[in-house]
Simulated scan of single mutants.
Amino acid sequence: MLYGSIEAGGTKFVCAIGNEKLEILERVSYPTTTPAETMALVIEFFNQYKEELVSIGIGSFGPIDIRPTSETYGFITSTPKLAWQNYNFLGAMKEAFDVPMAWTTDVNAAAYGEYAYGHGKDLSSVVYYTIGTGVGAGAIQNGQFIEGFSHPEMGHVLVVPHEDDDFAGSCPFHGNCLEGMAAGPAIEKRTGRKGQDIPEDDAFWAIEAEYIAQCAYNTTLMFAPEVIIFGGGVMKQRHMMEKVHAAFERLMKGYVATPPLAQYIVTPALEDNAGTIGCLALAQKAKADA
């Protein structure tokens, strides 16, 4: 039996095939252009495995409709990517493949990967953030995603501007939300440089760490999870975690006794594989639940 994974991002779609041990057997990447172009490539890829494919896990950029009773369940809804607005993603996949499918956000999929096989393994509560081109988050409690009328948009929680930061924020909706202040485009707009081109000792990183620490502080007080995981391109700056831990301690002021920070606020154990492994694990679960 083979399981399929689709990490549908705003820039690229990463498709993979895994076995029953969730080992990645093949993985490909396609640019996110239009539904007609991109989905044709996705379907062509999985068609190679149609006889052995038993289920597919999909983690998509959003916003998406996750309510099974909704008329637009499985749709990408009000995305700024105009070609994908109100696109029936799940419907297109079900038309091509008659197998069980899991449907969630791309960051939920990464959260599930870490929950099942990464830093969240054997824990009951995990919160995962990706800080890259945008900021998104997923929260899991006892194997279930925390969500209600829709999926959370924790990347748009407001943050208090750092005293040395006069940047107004790059989010067109909220200005000084976490995404508007800390995502990759915010870094480049503020500094004129991409994150990977800014030296480790640059004073900017203390500002960035402050915003991520505020996120961890708010998450701790709202959910008290057993682990908070920060993934995404910005967190590939390995020096960041020490700065985030220090800023978090300053903010918390000892009010809540958390687990040791080296185990509590971390980067993904699965690194760039969290999303793919998460989609494969969700595909496996969809098959078992069918």
Results as ranks from 00 to 15, higher is better:
Y128L: 11
I207F: 07
C171I: 04
G134W: 05
V127F: 14
H162F: 01
G184T: 00
M154K: 10
V127R: 13
Q196E: 11
A213K: 08
P172I: 00
A137F: 13
Y217E: 10
A182W: 04
E147T: 08
R190K: 11
I207C: 10
K121Q: 14
G180M: 00
A186R: 03
Q214W: 09
F173V: 07
Y128W: 12
P185Y: 01
N176A: 07
L158E: 09
V126F: 08
G169F: 05
I187C: 07
R190L: 04
Q144D: 00
C177V: 03
T220W: 03
P172H: 06
P172A: 03
D165S: 10
Q141H: 08
E163I: 06
H174L: 07
V160Y: 07
D164I: 00
G134R: 11
Q141E: 04
K194E: 13
P161R: 05
A213L: 03
G143Y: 00
T220Q: 05
G169N: 02
S150Y: 05
M181R: 13
H151S: 07
G195V: 00
A139R: 12
V157G: 11
E147I: 08
C215M: 10
S170G: 03
F204E: 03
F167H: 06
F149Y: 14
I146V: 11
R193L: 06
I187Q: 05
N142R: 01
C177T: 03
A213T: 09
G148H: 02
S170Q: 02
G184W: 01
L178M: 12
T133C: 15
Y129Q: 15
C171D: 06
Q141L: 06
A216H: 07
E200Q: 14
E179I: 02
D165R: 05
A216C: 15
A186Q: 01
P199S: 11
Y128V: 09
E153R: 14
D202G: 06
G169C: 00
G136Q: 14
E210L: 06
F167V: 02
D166R: 02
G175Q: 06
M154Y: 12
H119Q: 13
P199Q: 10
A168F: 01
G120C: 13
A213G: 07
G143W: 00
Y211S: 10
G175K: 03
P172R: 07
A186H: 02
A139T: 10
V127H: 13
E210D: 12
A183H: 04
E163H: 05
C171R: 08
E153N: 10
E200C: 12
T219N: 15
G195T: 00
